[in-house]
Amino acid sequence: MVGLSLGEKQFIHGGIAEDLRTDGRKRLHYRPISIETGVIPQANGSARVRLGATDVIVSIKAELGKPSSLQPDKGKVAIFVDCSSTAAPMFEGRGGEELSSELSVALQRCLLGGKSGAGAGIDPSSLVIVEGKVCWDLYIDGLVVSSDGNLLDALGAAIKVALSNTGIPKVTVILGPSPNDQPDVDLSDEEFLQFDTTGVPVIVTLTKVGRHYIADATLEEESQMSSAMSVSLNRHGHICGLTKRGGAGLDPSVVLDMISVAQHVGEQLMSMLDSEIAAAEAAAAQEQ
């Protein structure tokens, strides 16, 4: 990306101060979101979210596995993000690894809760089949195809949509002759378990440029930020996770203020996503 000249930087700062950004948006406006579901038919669930020029694809695959001995009544969920080199030439080879791992960890923190599994946005106990022996392993893979800022929000939204699109085949368990054996599992082709995504949180990132915060920053605006905070909120407005990036320090009152703004913005984002998901489901049902 070409560097910004001094004039351009001033323009950005000024615009934000005036509540008129370079592309005409207000400070807390999101770019138009477009959502597509089922883009990867081979996966159990998939979604593609375009936030302006940012384009991310998320696919969810479920595989049979053994639950961890620490939590025998829960399935396992793993989130991986990969920044494709098509998004930016600097992601070539291992260049995108740093960003990928940062995004993965942030998403894990926001959606999966702590180590003990408490407070997770996605409830893994619905993934268990036979306690202690067989469970579903959910692999959530994100791919950043094109990057124009605000990757975390886009990925969060994509994960929520993909989960609503996910169908896990129903299983019937055939117990082996002795109780110690690994039971055999028979898949049914027709019935699917749908995920309940009302509990899944969305992520709202607020970027502080100068003295104001903006939501949904573009790449240029992000380059001018002093610090950014990503808040993960669920339907009830509860905070499920929090990440602060950027070098500049923030006054604690500013932090609390940012959180309340994020809640407000988050509600709107949530309702917009929900309506999009419903529209997509209706379209899919009609096609059937």
């Binding site: 990867i40 595989e63 991986f80 990969d82 494709s84 080199s85 080879g93 692999y139 893979d141 791919l143």
Partner: peptide
């Protein structure tokens, strides 16, 4: 030129090292 496959591109999901 760089060619890479996404983790979910094939029937069974495998993590692909880039190189």
């Amino acid at each position: 030129c760089e060619y890479s496959m996404a983790n979910f591109s094939t029937g069974d999901r495998t993590r692909r090292p880039k190189g």
